[in-house]
Amino acid sequence: DLSALRVEEVQNVINAMQKILECPICLELIKEPVSTKCDHIFCKFCMLKLLNQKKGPSQCPLCKNDITKRSLQESTRFSQLVEELLKIICAFQLDTGLEYANSYNFAKKENNSPEHLKDEVSIIQSMGYRNRAKRLLQSEPENPSLQETSLSVQLSNLGTVRTLRTKQRIQPQRTSVYIELGSDSSEDTVNKATYCSVGDQELLQITPQGTRDEISLDSAKKAACEFSETDVTNTEHHQPSNNDLNTTEKRAAERHPEKYQGSSVSNLHVEPCGTNTHASSLQHENSSLLLTKDRMNVEKAEF
């Protein structure tokens, strides 16, 4: 173990290094160091905050020279020094078990990766560091076993998940096959086929009936047209017969005018059967003409 005197000496050296690497504005270890034209180094955030307070150039807090945003430059070497100082402080805390008085939040800088452990060898070769390295080497064999167990647990979990997924996939297939086998029997399929065939026959029977009705309507229309044509021909046949009657009536009127007047009046009210309204109107006109002729003949006879 380190003596108290040596611990104090190391602590004083760390404090001196820390004062050199402090920012003059925030009085902390410089984060993202930036250098000016006057070779003074500050935190990048502190300098941008200072420049944004005034429009135009501002003055350096140490030498009062003008500073602009374009004049600022990043210093990589200074950032490396800060990183190495942080590593020294971490090693000091691990070796002594004491917390550094002016320690900052170094938890963000710590890294437990194997590459980081290899890099620590180049920091300080001390008894405390050696003991700590031995402890780490002793704890390393235990870690692979834990990793193997965790991997086995994960693989077993994956296997159970896969088996569950396969079961879920197989179950719908089985149910679907069961439904297909038990849903419709052979008799049901035959009945469905016969039902479809009967429906098709009914459709075939319905369509000819409609065509037959249309044919019957067409035949009825044709018969009505033929009947009207026969009526017209009958009226045409009746007209010459009426003319013959008129000639006979004229002759009778010349011989017996008194008797014919009474008979002509009675004939006005008689309509021949089986004739249309057109034929009756023609008869009325003929009878009126005959009456006028008879009157003329009677007057001539009187004179």
Results as ranks from 00 to 15, higher is better:
50 L>F: 15
5 L>P: 06
106 F>Y: 13
213 D>N: 01
131 N>Y: 10
249 E>K: 02
2 L>F: 03
265 V>L: 11
54 K>E: 00
143 N>T: 09
78 F>S: 15
151 L>I: 05
57 P>A: 15
298 V>I: 14
124 I>F: 07
143 N>K: 14
80 Q>H: 09
72 L>I: 01
163 T>P: 10
271 E>K: 09
251 R>S: 09
114 P>A: 09
49 K>R: 06
129 Y>N: 05
155 L>I: 02
160 T>A: 11
164 L>P: 03
123 I>F: 15
209 Q>R: 13
24 P>T: 00
7 V>I: 10
123 I>L: 12
229 E>Q: 12
33 P>L: 05
131 N>S: 01
89 I>V: 04
116 H>Y: 14
82 V>A: 01
233 T>K: 09
292 T>I: 14
208 P>H: 11
69 K>N: 13
248 T>P: 15
162 R>T: 10
265 V>F: 11
84 E>K: 04
83 E>K: 03
214 E>K: 09
5 L>V: 07
51 L>R: 01
16 A>T: 02
124 I>T: 08
177 V>I: 04
145 S>A: 04
205 Q>H: 09
8 E>K: 13
89 I>N: 11
82 V>D: 00
120 E>D: 09
221 K>Q: 10
156 S>F: 08
119 D>E: 01
265 V>D: 13
243 N>S: 07
288 S>R: 11
92 F>L: 00
258 E>Q: 09
51 L>V: 13
81 L>V: 06
32 E>V: 04
158 L>I: 14
105 N>T: 06
185 S>Y: 07
52 N>I: 00
244 D>G: 07
65 N>Y: 04
129 Y>F: 05
63 C>S: 01
90 C>F: 12
26 C>G: 00
67 I>K: 02
280 S>I: 08
30 I>M: 00
60 C>F: 01
56 G>R: 04
250 K>E: 12
188 D>Y: 01
236 E>V: 04
15 N>H: 14
6 R>C: 01
299 E>Q: 05
276 N>S: 13
59 Q>R: 03
135 R>G: 14
210 G>V: 10
127 M>L: 09
277 T>I: 09
64 K>E: 04
39 D>V: 03
67 I>M: 04
192 K>M: 14
177 V>F: 02
54 K>M: 00
2 L>V: 13
17 M>R: 00
144 P>T: 05
264 S>T: 12
140 E>V: 01
223 A>T: 10
161 V>A: 08
72 L>R: 03
9 E>A: 06
129 Y>D: 06
220 A>T: 10
263 S>C: 10
43 C>Y: 00
91 A>S: 05
73 Q>K: 05
209 Q>H: 09
35 S>C: 05
144 P>R: 13
163 T>N: 09
74 E>K: 02
150 S>T: 09
83 E>A: 10
10 V>I: 07
27 L>R: 01
78 F>V: 15
160 T>N: 10
228 S>P: 12
10 V>L: 00
73 Q>R: 08
264 S>P: 01
154 Q>H: 05
132 R>G: 08
12 N>T: 03
142 E>K: 11
34 V>F: 00
62 L>F: 00
182 G>E: 02
80 Q>R: 05
109 K>Q: 08
241 S>C: 07
94 L>R: 12
262 G>D: 13
59 Q>P: 05
44 K>E: 04
233 T>I: 14
264 S>F: 00
252 A>T: 06
146 L>W: 10
36 T>P: 09
44 K>T: 01
47 M>V: 07
17 M>V: 02
19 K>R: 02
111 N>D: 14
258 E>A: 04
167 K>N: 11
215 I>M: 05
187 E>K: 02
143 N>S: 08
5 L>R: 09
27 L>M: 03
204 L>F: 12
94 L>F: 06
236 E>K: 13
147 Q>H: 06
184 D>Y: 02
20 I>N: 15
152 S>N: 11
159 G>V: 04
238 H>Y: 08
234 N>K: 06
44 K>R: 06
262 G>A: 12
203 L>V: 15
200 D>E: 02
137 L>V: 02
219 S>T: 15
224 A>T: 14
79 S>T: 06
148 E>G: 06
37 K>M: 10
74 E>V: 13
158 L>V: 06
228 S>F: 01
120 E>V: 03
241 S>N: 02
303 F>V: 15
184 D>N: 07
92 F>V: 01
214 E>Q: 07
255 R>G: 11
294 D>Y: 07
259 K>M: 07
139 S>T: 11
204 L>S: 14
86 L>W: 08
221 K>E: 07
159 G>E: 10
34 V>I: 08
176 S>P: 14
48 L>R: 08
260 Y>C: 05
36 T>I: 00
49 K>Q: 06
212 R>S: 15
187 E>V: 08
116 H>Q: 12
130 R>K: 11
54 K>N: 07
57 P>H: 06
252 A>V: 06
186 S>C: 15
271 E>G: 02
261 Q>P: 10
19 K>I: 01
78 F>Y: 14
143 N>Y: 10
31 K>M: 07
73 Q>H: 10
176 S>Y: 00
45 F>Y: 10
301 A>S: 14
267 N>I: 03
121 V>L: 12
5 L>F: 05
144 P>L: 11
142 E>V: 06
37 K>Q: 10
118 K>I: 09
30 I>S: 14
18 Q>R: 00
141 P>H: 09
40 H>L: 01
269 H>N: 07
1 D>Y: 11
230 T>M: 13
144 P>H: 08
119 D>N: 10
135 R>S: 07
48 L>P: 04
201 Q>E: 05
17 M>T: 00
93 Q>P: 00
135 R>T: 06
75 S>R: 05
69 K>Q: 15
165 R>M: 12
246 N>S: 02
98 L>S: 11
182 G>R: 04
6 R>S: 05
53 Q>L: 12
300 K>N: 08
254 E>D: 01
166 T>A: 10
289 L>F: 08
86 L>S: 13
13 V>A: 10
218 D>Y: 07
121 V>I: 12
17 M>I: 02
219 S>Y: 12
113 S>F: 04
76 T>S: 10
158 L>H: 13
68 T>S: 06
133 A>V: 05
300 K>E: 10
229 E>K: 09
150 S>I: 04
231 D>N: 13
51 L>I: 06
259 K>E: 11
131 N>K: 09
67 I>V: 06
136 L>P: 09
64 K>R: 15
125 Q>H: 11
260 Y>H: 12
199 G>E: 11
263 S>N: 11
